[in-house]
């Protein structure tokens, strides 16, 4: 593309993800806010820019932005674009929890798909986390299960 002034948000869409694309975009924006790459009053890419960057239907991007606006995560300044709400930090704890739930749900699904028992899976998670904290060497190891977060 001819005009690209640095990517504003790193949005990754996964074609294998079963959820509608607009939900994926919403999640990615929320994730960016939770990890702090997007903060209060930060501008978001325009619908046009994000649609071109992700090669998605501009309507999908609009839908995602509209939903996020309804939820109070984003707001629109007339003629200037879309921005992160100033009070986005207020509900941060709750959003963090709901995101954790989402990730856990996906992990659980993956575990079930592989025929694992829930307790066994949770134990294994803790073990792995402990290993990574202690050794650090294990952290870079490629993930056996594939492409989860």
């Amino acid at each position: 593309m001819q005009h690209r002034h640095g990517t504003l948000v790193l949005v990754n869409l996964s074609p294998a993800d079963a959820r509608p694309l607009y939900l994926q975009i919403m999640d990615e924006v929320r994730r960016a806010i939770v990890v702090g790459s997007l903060r209060a009053e930060d501008p978001l890419p325009s619908v046009r820019e994000l649609a071109a960057e992700l090669v998605v239907n501009p309507r999908t991007v609009s839908q995602a932005y509209n939903e996020l606006e309804r939820e109070g995560v984003l707001y629109v300044r007339r003629g200037q674009g879309t921005f992160v709400s100033p009070d986005v930090t207020r509900g941060a704890e709750q959003r963090r929890r709901s995101q954790a739930r989402d990730v856990a749900r996906r992990a659980l699904l993956e575990a079930r798909r592989n025929g694992l028992d829930v307790d066994e899976f949770v134990t294994m998670l803790r073990e792995l986390a402990a290993e990574e904290q202690n050794g650090g060497t294990e952290a870079g190891r490629p993930n056996e299960t594939g492409d989860d977060e």
Binding site: A52, V55, V56, N57
Partner: peptide, 26 residues
């Protein structure tokens, strides 16, 4: 995609590479 964001447009396209317009087509 940019073009579609700028002007209300309906698109009908045929392609052998559906994968590449996976997130564009509705």
């Amino acid at each position: 995609a940019e073009h579609l964001a700028d002007a209300p447009t309906t698109v009908m396209m045929s392609t052998h590479h559906i994968g590449e317009i996976e997130s564009l087509a509705d």
